[in-house]
């Protein structure tokens, strides 16, 4: 199936693109998608997605079709064809 991944803020800078369509197996969950992206994207992107211990990065805000999904629920949420996954690393003022 095909789904769309959007990158924002520092992650966009590191990845070098705003969004992309990717092919991913049917029946996969959101956590599996994030682990997959961490291995496929440039090495500098991985720490935004996963902790040093390989867990989902708690400070990454992940939205599925514009609804936030907390990292502790990501294994329970399936992704489907046509879904839009937005990755929003934390940013601040200044």
């Amino acid at each position: 199936m095909r789904l769309r991944v959007q990158y924002t803020a520092q992650l966009r800078t590191v990845v070098g693109r705003t969004e992309e369509e990717i092919e991913f197996p049917e029946g996969s969950n959101l956590a599996e998608l994030l682990v997959h992206l961490a291995s496929e994207l440039r090495r500098e992107a991985a720490p935004f997605l996963l902790t040093a211990g390989g867990e989902l990065q708690p400070s990454l805000l992940v939205a599925l079709n514009h609804g936030a999904v907390s990292s502790c629920n990501a294994r329970a949420v399936l992704v489907n064809a046509g879904d839009v996954v937005t990755l929003l690393p934390p940013i601040a003022g200044g």
Binding site: Q10, F48, P58, S59, S70, P89, P90, I91, G93, G94
Partner: peptide
Amino acid sequence: SCLYPEKPPHWKREFPVFGAVASTV
């Protein structure tokens, strides 16, 4: 904290931005 439960490890104090973006926010 519901969005960001802990201090993000990769945030840098200085970052790229335009003043017009700051004013918009």
